[in-house]
Design a protein around this nucleic acid. Sequence first.
DNA 1: TACCAGACCGTAATCGTTTTCGGAAATCCT
DNA 2: AGGATTTCCGAAAACGATTACGGTCTGGTA
Lengths: 338, 338
Amino acid sequence: MKGIRRLAEHLDISIGTVSRALNGKPDVNEETRRRVLEAAEQLGYVANQSGRALRKGSTGVIGFMMQTGREITGQGDIFFMSVFDGVQTVLARHKLDLVALLCSSEEDPDDYLKRMVARGFADGIILSATRRHDARFEFLARHSIPFITLGRSLTDVGQPWIDLDFEGMAEMSIERLARAGHSRIGFVWPHGDLNLGYVFIERCREALARHGLTLAEECIFRANPNEAGGYAVARQIKDSAKPPTAIILVNETLVTGLYHGLEEVGLRPGPDIAIIGRRSPQARFLSPSLTGFELSLRDLGIALAESLLSAMPAYGHLYPEVVRRKLWPMSLIDGDSG
Amino acid sequence: MKGIRRLAEHLDISIGTVSRALNGKPDVNEETRRRVLEAAEQLGYVANQSGRALRKGSTGVIGFMMQTGREITGQGDIFFMSVFDGVQTVLARHKLDLVALLCSSEEDPDDYLKRMVARGFADGIILSATRRHDARFEFLARHSIPFITLGRSLTDVGQPWIDLDFEGMAEMSIERLARAGHSRIGFVWPHGDLNLGYVFIERCREALARHGLTLAEECIFRANPNEAGGYAVARQIKDSAKPPTAIILVNETLVTGLYHGLEEVGLRPGPDIAIIGRRSPQARFLSPSLTGFELSLRDLGIALAESLLSAMPAYGHLYPEVVRRKLWPMSLIDGDSG
DNA sequence: TACCAGACCGTAATCGTTTTCGGAAATCCT
DNA sequence: AGGATTTCCGAAAACGATTACGGTCTGGTA
């Protein structure tokens, strides 16, 4: 005898009543409820997730999908820890749990998500590392799974999203560099179909145009979105016939590699070549200090969760005013690198 | 009509046969099986996780428990991405999925785990950030949930574990520093009850003794296990009446902060004070280059998964030879910092 | 023909919950 | 007192899968 049945037997009442007592349903005597709660505590009873989910059709779990592996995503790693923290503070209010759905780099992200959804794993999903063309959007929409994306995509299906304010980043970077007299500005574009690269470069082009400049094709450097990628870019710059005098990076993990690479080839960030990137927690300790953008990841997580909840039938009414789509603001912090 | 019933109806056969066909059971006509598989593919059918788990009593999911939040664990962040990668390559062989069980810093880890287990969330669990006294061990043992820990604890219950080879790290570090003439060697001890701090300092004491040295109490610096913590240590060192001439760090995230802090107070790693730490992917790009330990996180993940599987009834026979407990070797890489 | 073995497949029980529905007992109202 | 409400609880039907069991059919053999 296991589960709720055991509890019911022990109390000599029916399992229905036990369930109602536990779930705070109204039609149960307060004295009975007290006894049930007490016995549950004492016997260490917790409802079986499978049975409950099967019956209710919902799991109480929110999934945050992310990629693992060596060639990690655009916004890898530490980035997420703080975002999770924000997401969880919101979810905790509704007794929802957050788990990270880890898609191995060896599996196709679309297949992976499909599997997780069909399994009925989560009631709502947060997608990260959005691609320019991302089949996951349509899939989730088709199955009417509530979801929100951290990042945009051409494949928009009207779902809520939050993305970094690349518009603002581009304008502020270019403005600053142009004012400092730079006219040959380069850009590191992470390999892969990640959407953020496309968006940012487009915004940069526009911002450059506003300042009467253009983005030279040979000043666009492709790189894997990790330290090694940044490192390799330094060499490319050095070997370039007409190297840029300034470099802008979207991707935080590229920065440390680039710094190291530049040192190897004898270029100092700042005096020799201006660098503007994202000041991640680690990047804050680079020397010379990095000029770049900071943002509150925890608040971003909070917004993400609230926006997702507002898209879920069961919680939507609790978040009527929530913004569904937002460019997350970042502030440009002065450093010595540009 | 949903799920397997729909599929059965569509094919005009019974749900039992469909299930058998899908699960590769022997007593089903090959032609029928082909039709079922085809229809399943076409209709995008995937078995519902709740129903399946309820009936089978297992979920096909392995949980990797980790802490989120600002004051992140000893071995935070990027560390795990590569470990996950290794774990997943093994799990994929058995069609098992890995999810990260994210325990918010606001919830008690023991309570969190209890909840997840009672929910029947995972068939096996990997524990990280093990504490010196860790109630989770006994809990999982009592409920006979297969688990393995990344890190040891005083609360050993005979479960398999893998831990970094702090013994080797201590001996190699001290050996190297002693040979270089250092006699006043300091140590950064991360705050909290994490077991690794205790282990490493103990091994350092022993190693020092072997070289006729002792660890001065005032050379033990407590710090939060993150960049800010490392940064703060630099100040402490500077203000110390009799500062150490060398510092050893267990925790990878402390290093970048310490480097930055030392620069602020005018101490150069290497010439002014020797530093030995862990060369994480980011730390590899520090300047001056860090003398420290490297290891294969991916292989560690593989070992972790195999060892966990060997402790699970359903898979144990497949991994008869697996090591159940292992000190993971690390190699000391020369740098300019010590 | 009669019998039997093997190959396939359908029926139904089962896993542990939640929830609807209806009934019994208690309480209220006139 | 008697009917109408409430209050509380038990019985039973889902939820979607797996699987033990038994039944039908085929083909082979005596």
